[in-house]
C-alpha cells in the first residue's frame, strides 16, 4: 500500500500542491529537451539522406566546439571563428565522403554504423590532440541572466537556446522544402536508385548532408559548450539523444524536436517526482525505458515513416 502511495498518489499530490514549481520543472525539461533535439537533428539529417546511423554525431559536436574554442583562444574574433569552424566542418564532410563513405557504398547498415564508431574515435583523438583535452570555457556572448515571469524562474540562456533551435528548424524546413538542393535531398532520401536515375549526383548530396549535419553539430556544440564547458563528455550526449530519435522516428525532423521535448520534460518530471521512490538518479535510464515502452506500441516512432516489409 505504501508503495502504491509513493508511486501513484504522492507525486500527483506534490504536483497539485505547488503548480508554480511544476511549471518550472516542465519549462526546465522543455529547455533541456531543446538541447537534446539539437543533437538529434544531426542524426536525422544524415540518416534521412544516406541511411547511415551516424554514431559520430556526438564526436562531431565535440570536435566543432573544440575547434571554435581553440580558434577563439588564439585571439580570433567570434564571428571569424564561427565561419572558420563551419568551414572546417565542411572540409571534414568532404574528407568523410571521399575516404570513408565512397568505398563503403552498398555495404550493410551495421558496417556503416561500425565505420562511424571508428570515425567517432578518430575525431575525439584528433580534436583533443589539436586543441588540448582540458575543460574549456566557451563564451560567445550569449546572455546568461535569470529573471522571473509570474513567479517562474527563467534563464535567458535557455530561452536563447530555444530560439536558436526554432530558427534552425525553420531554416532547415525552408531549405528542405523550397530549394532545389533540398528537393534533391528529399529525392535521395526517398529512393537512392531513382534519384541517381534522374541525374541527382549522389556524392555531392552526401557532402552537402554531412556539411549541414556538421554545422548543426557546431550549433549544438556552442549551446552545450556554453552551458557545461567544452570537454570530452560532450561526445556522450549523442547517447542521450538516441531515445529522442526513437521517440520521434529516425526520419523526421519535427519528430526530433517533439521527441526531444517529450524526453526532456518526462525525464525531469520523473526524476523530481518519482526519483525518490526509486532511490534517485533515474535520469540515466528513464529516457531509454520510455523509448522502449513507446516502441512496443509504435515501432516506427511518432513521425517516422511506416515500416512496410516486402517479401
Amino acid at each position: 500500500m505504501d508503495l502504491m502511495n509513493i508511486l501513484f498518489i504522492a507525486p500527483f499530490l506534490d504536483m497539485a500542491d505547488s503548480p508554480v514549481f511544476l511549471a518550472e520543472v516542465v519549462i526546465g525539461g522543455v529547455l533541456t529537451g531543446v538541447m537534446y533535439s539539437l543533437v538529434a537533428l544531426g542524426f536525422v539529417l544524415i540518416f534521412k539522406a544516406s541511411g547511415v546511423f551516424n554514431f559520430a554525431q556526438g564526436a562531431m559536436v565535440l570536435f566543432a566546439a573544440l575547434t571554435l574554442v581553440g580558434l577563439m583562444e588564439r585571439g580570433v574574433p567570434v564571428w571569424l571563428a564561427l565561419i572558420g569552424t563551419a568551414a572546417v566542418m565542411v572540409v571534414l564532410a568532404f574528407i568523410i565522403e571521399r575516404v570513408m563513405l565512397r568505398p563503403l557504398i552498398h555495404q550493410e547498415g551495421i558496417i556503416l554504423f561500425m565505420a562511424t564508431i571508428g570515425l567517432d574515435f578518430l575525431l575525439q583523438g584528433v580534436g583533443q590532440i589539436a586543441w588540448g583535452s582540458n575543460v574549456k570555457v566557451l563564451n560567445v556572448g550569449i546572455p546568461n541572466e535569470s529573471f522571473e515571469v509570474g513567479g517562474i524562474l527563467l534563464n535567458e540562456f535557455d530561452l536563447f537556446a530555444a530560439l536558436i533551435a526554432a530558427v534552425l528548424v525553420g531554416v532547415l524546413a525552408v531549405f528542405f522544402q523550397k530549394t532545389a538542393i533540398g528537393r534533391a535531398l528529399r529525392a535521395v532520401a526517398d529512393d537512392h536508385q531513382a534519384a541517381l536515375a534522374i541525374g541527382i549526383p549522389l556524392k555531392t548530396i552526401w557532402v552537402i548532408v554531412w556539411s549541414v549535419a556538421g554545422i548543426v553539430a557546431l550549433v549544438a556544440g556552442i549551446m552545450w559548450g556554453a552551458k557545461s564547458g567544452v570537454q570530452f563528455s560532450l561526445s556522450l550526449i549523442a547517447l542521450k539523444s538516441l531515445p529522442v530519435l526513437i521517440l520521434g522516428g529516425f526520419t523526421s525532423i519535427p519528430g526530433a524536436i517533439i521527441g526531444g521535448l517529450i524526453i526532456g520534460v518526462g525525464e525531469k518530471i520523473a526524476e523530481i517526482y518519482w526519483g525518490p521512490a526509486f532511490g534517485g538518479a533515474i535520469e540515466g535510464w528513464f529516457a531509454y525505458m520510455l523509448a522502449l515502452v513507446f516502441l512496443l506500441f509504435r515501432p516506427q516512432g511518432l513521425f517516422g515513416e511506416r515500416i512496410i516489409e516486402r517479401v
Partner: peptide, 11 residues
C-alpha cells in the same frame, strides 16, 4: 589520444 586515432583509423 594517438591510441584513439589509430584504433579509429584501423577500424
Amino acid at each position: 589520444h594517438i591510441e584513439e586515432i589509430i584504433l579509429g583509423g584501423l577500424i
